[in-house]
Measured scan of single mutants.
Amino acid sequence: MPSETPQAEVGPTGCPHRSGPHSAKGSLEKGSPEDKEAKEPLWIRPDAPSRCTWQLGRPASESPHHHTAPAKSPKILPDILKKIGDTPMVRINKIGKKFGLKCELLAKCEFFNAGGSVKDRISLRMIEDAERDGTLKPGDTIIEPTSGNTGIGLALAAAVRGYRCIIVMPEKMSSEKVDVLRALGAEIVRTPTNARFDSPESHVGVAWRLKNEIPNSHILDQYRNASNPLAHYDTTADEILQQCDGKLDMLVASVGTGGTITGIARKLKEKCPGCRIIGVDPEGSILAEPEELNQTEQTTYEVEGIGYDFIPTVLDRTVVDKWFKSNDEEAFTFARMLIAQEGLLCGGSAGSTVAVAVKAAQELQEGQRCVVILPDSVRNYMTKFLSDRWMLQKGFLKEEDLTEKKPWWWHLRVQELGLSAPLTVLPTITCGHTIEILREKGFDQAPVVDEAGVILGMVTLGNMLSSLLAGKVQPSDQVGKVIYKQFKQIRLTDTLGRLSHILEMDHFALVV
């Protein structure tokens, strides 16, 4: 994948999101292997301009796509893939009243899908469409860049269908997702969380590099694949309309690839034109409109599966009536509230959605109805927002919020430890010299600072030695090549209790 991002070429006709291997024109390309080798690009942008032909009021008969309808489940399912879809609609009884809503608040519980998330729908649909058009064949390999849930859905379907599955996901995604993927037989590649989507090191860039190296491999490409919004247009939206008897006044959905909100909203605009569509985008993402909503100094966020630093091709923002931004604290607070007060075992993005819903639905009156999409299960986040310690460490809970008995030293300040200034190293000294210094002084790690004293990161003896043994660096290389740029900081005025929580999850903390 090139470091400079080429513009994806656009073909003359058809839909841009065809499933299957992508040609340089962004659509299915038939021909000899030699032709494909000559024409197939190194990668295709996940934010390529959409060429979708959908228009409100256009006859369904003019759609270029294969459409399906929700099917009634048999008493005995032939395999677990038949437990994807037909998820329950559940009334939220307490939270709406707590925040003064007059309307009825309903939750579409997508964590009841077989793999635990709304992404099971698009995973199965992308595979079925690729099999139907002859792209996927027995023994082929599926590769997908994902925040985890699409990966789980694909790995689940691949396990049943017999495909090899490789999932490329950023490091910030939970260990629970990784464990589930491994249990399903998927191979996992992790990428830096802070890598831009168009960087060769991003999950998108690495996935395309693997595709170019592995024979008979395919990126189904949830960011561009029409099967993504079509899955929701054909099934999720129809289920909502049936469950609500066609009567709903507002739908609120958090947005990642945009397939969920695009597919549902398009069908609702056709069948229930008075329904307002509300999009939820986390602070630090750029999906919301108008652009002024996205202006923030924050560039990272903890909530998973929603928000991006690019506009995915499948996201149709014209069908969203209003956007709201959400933050991590309210997302996790509301997710825990949904679990504790409503018994809905949902993930953090569901918290984002409901946090926005109780604001947006203030305009609705008694007798009206708001539906929220709860995308995934708490299963993926047992060591994250479900953990009091994690919430404390991230600053989303305060010590006084917890009532468990603490040891005698818990409320003492870090400054009472009488710490001395640490050994520091410059980023320009060599790895070999740094190892000598650390061994001589008896230290395992040291902060790396520039000549102005600005902290650049941390270097550890173990990481340097393993990097040297693996051949990633040489003793003569500058130590700046092996620094940890993500590390926890703590102030002298913070409590030892807070430091204790940090050290339970990290090997060190830097006192500043």
Results as ranks from 00 to 15, higher is better:
Leu42Asp: 09
Glu4Ala: 11
Gly151Cys: 02
Asp234His: 03
Arg58Lys: 11
Asp234Val: 03
Leu101Thr: 04
Gly205Tyr: 07
Asp221Arg: 01
Val206Gln: 06
Ala265Leu: 03
Lys25Phe: 08
Pro2Glu: 14
Gly153Leu: 00
Arg182Val: 04
Glu144Lys: 06
Asp35Ala: 14
Leu101Met: 05
Trp208Pro: 12
Arg45Ile: 09
Gly96Ala: 13
Thr235Cys: 15
Ser199Arg: 07
Arg58Ser: 05
Thr146Glu: 04
Ala237Asn: 06
Gly26Met: 07
Ala107Ile: 04
Glu9Val: 12
Gln242Phe: 08
Pro46Trp: 04
Leu241Gly: 07
His232Gln: 04
Arg224Glu: 11
Arg276Thr: 11
Glu128Phe: 11
Glu62Gln: 14
Asn149Lys: 02
Gly263Thr: 01
Ala48Tyr: 09
Asn113Gly: 10
Trp208Ile: 12
Gly31Trp: 15
Thr191Val: 04
Asp249Tyr: 03
Ser63Met: 09
Arg266Lys: 14
Ala183Thr: 12
Leu105Trp: 00
Cys52Lys: 02
Asp221Lys: 04
His65Ser: 00
Asp129Ile: 02
Cys165Val: 05
Gly274Asn: 10
Val189Cys: 07
Lys108Thr: 01
Leu268Ser: 00
Asp179Leu: 06
Ala195Thr: 10
Leu184Phe: 06
Gly256Leu: 00
Lys83Glu: 12
Lys137Pro: 03
Ala114Cys: 04
Thr13Lys: 08
Ala195His: 05
Ile152Val: 11
Pro16Phe: 03
Ile166Cys: 06
Pro33Trp: 07
Gly20Leu: 11
Leu181Arg: 01
Gly20Trp: 08
Leu268Tyr: 03
Lys36Leu: 14
Pro21Cys: 11
Ser32Leu: 09
Asp129Thr: 08
Gly148Pro: 00
Arg132Pro: 08
Met250Ala: 02
Ala231Arg: 02
Val90Phe: 01
Lys83Met: 07
His17Asp: 11
Arg266Trp: 07
Arg276Glu: 06
Cys109Asn: 06
Val252Ile: 14
Ser27Phe: 06
Trp54Lys: 06
Pro33Ser: 11
Thr135Phe: 10
Pro64Ser: 06
Pro16Asp: 05
Glu104Val: 11
Lys39Thr: 10
Val160Ile: 12
Met89His: 05
Ala24Phe: 13
Ala60Thr: 10
Pro12Gly: 08
Met89Ala: 03
Pro138Thr: 15
Lys269Cys: 13
Asn225Thr: 10
